[in-house]
Write a protein that binds this DNA or RNA. Sequence first.
DNA 1: ACGTACATGTAAGGAGTTACATGATTTG
DNA 2: CAAATCATGTAACTCCTTACATGTACGT
Lengths: 163, 163
Amino acid sequence: MTLRNAVLGLVAESPKTGFDLLKDFDVARSVLWPAPQNEVYRVLRQLAEEGLIEQTAVGARGARTYAITGAGREQLIAWLREPSDYTLRYEPMLKGVFLGDGDPALRRQRAADDAAFFKAQLAHLERIEAERTGPDPRRDARRMALHFYRAMAAWADGVSSDA
Amino acid sequence: MTLRNAVLGLVAESPKTGFDLLKDFDVARSVLWPAPQNEVYRVLRQLAEEGLIEQTAVGARGARTYAITGAGREQLIAWLREPSDYTLRYEPMLKGVFLGDGDPALRRQRAADDAAFFKAQLAHLERIEAERTGPDPRRDARRMALHFYRAMAAWADGVSSDA
DNA sequence: ACGTACATGTAAGGAGTTACATGATTTG
DNA sequence: CAAATCATGTAACTCCTTACATGTACGT
């Protein structure tokens, strides 16, 4: 139930519509994964039903703006307070498990593709970091992503330049 | 559908029963996440139905051993060949997105917990790495995990020792 | 014979994916 | 007024999660 918490957290930052959230969930611009449009609206309805967020306005084109409630903020903090689920499911890593057996050319190809992706992400994040000014509540997450992609790039380069 | 590929890959390494696979999916011992018992057997039935694996023996206690077929190996290689899904969903990183806003003490507490976990994982993987001898088909994946946890630990330490 | 490890199954519900569908406003 | 963008919805399906249930073999 991690999309649920993501939505709750994003609404806590400032009141938002489902459509606003969909932009936040665009990978290219942030650390978040792309959430299915569908799910975002379902989760909003669910959170509203549970009283964790509430609809504060209906704008043009039927846009429903939701804001977090007191109960919602409590629940968000409770989630932040509890130990994280450290389960990692990452396809490039899973492929790594099996690439050791097979064709070395395939293994190098995969590592090369991975390296290209990781470096592009790194460049993207570094550009954002450089362009930013003023206070930045997302700093931790972006730093974490920077560490992550830097490590992945180093790994991929290691595989490439290996017998 | 990544559990599916994980099972296919593991069966490709050597013929296995569902019970064998469950041990492979134990997090502590590898890079893989813990798969629900339930799902493993469902996926096995599904793969068998599609002809990607086949039942080669029935042992004691009704243990069904499955081996990969030609079609299965083709599909596995096809999957390894195609570009990975780089979508990352990692709870500690998601929390990082929201911890910037709130209570600094909570932020540091979270980073401290994270650091402890990451370092324990690192120590575990390093011990495995040190104890290993002979050829190692899982080397890439373990190296990747080492890079990953090292980066995460460095990030968490950074948060801790920060204004 | 008793407990433990082996080995699989079923059921119910929640979450995610993909595709399609609909209507309202703004912009040119 | 046509096209693009805004804004949400429905449906069908697959996958994942949690809990419970069942039976077989092995060691002592």
